[in-house]
């Protein structure tokens, strides 16, 4: 797994490529913790180049969601790979309660994040 963080419209975007499994999940967790410690309330995960995600990675996403919920935060997942989306839907990541939303590209995610900023 390779990962880098970019900021667009003040929203951190985690661009990840490769496989997110139990072995590399702690590295992703540390990165997210650092961003949340630095007061990030909105996160975008760009999974366009991710080809594998297991419950280790899913656990990290749920953890981020649980940390952001009390801050009225929001998570955007950018993903078009059907197999990945199927697994994420299966574990119930996307719903109003979790405030984790699926987008087909970064632009769409950032527009939604901006709207949320205006409303909230």
């Amino acid at each position: 797994m390779d990962m880098n963080v970019e900021y667009e419209k003040k929203v951190p975007i985690l661009q990840i490529s490769g496989e997110i499994d139990h072995f590399v999940a702690p590295k992703l967790q540390r990165q997210i913790d650092d961003l949340i410690d630095a007061d990030a309330v909105k996160l975008v995960f760009d999974f366009t180049k991710v080809d594998y995600l297991d419950s280790g990675g899913i656990g990290v996403l749920f953890n981020a969601m649980q940390q952001l919920l009390p801050r009225e935060g929001m998570i955007g997942i950018v993903c078009v790979e059907a197999n990945l989306i199927r697994i994420l839907e299966l574990v119930g990541l996307f719903n109003k309660k979790t405030n984790v939303l699926l987008f087909k590209d970064r632009e769409e995610a950032l527009v939604a994040m901006e709207k949320k900023i205006e409303v909230g």
Partner: peptide, 15 residues
């Protein structure tokens, strides 16, 4: 147990 994200591995296998 759906809310317990640690159980996801087993749920995924079952599905």
């Amino acid at each position: 147990d759906m809310a317990d994200y640690r159980a996801h591995g087993i749920l995924i296998m079952l599905a």
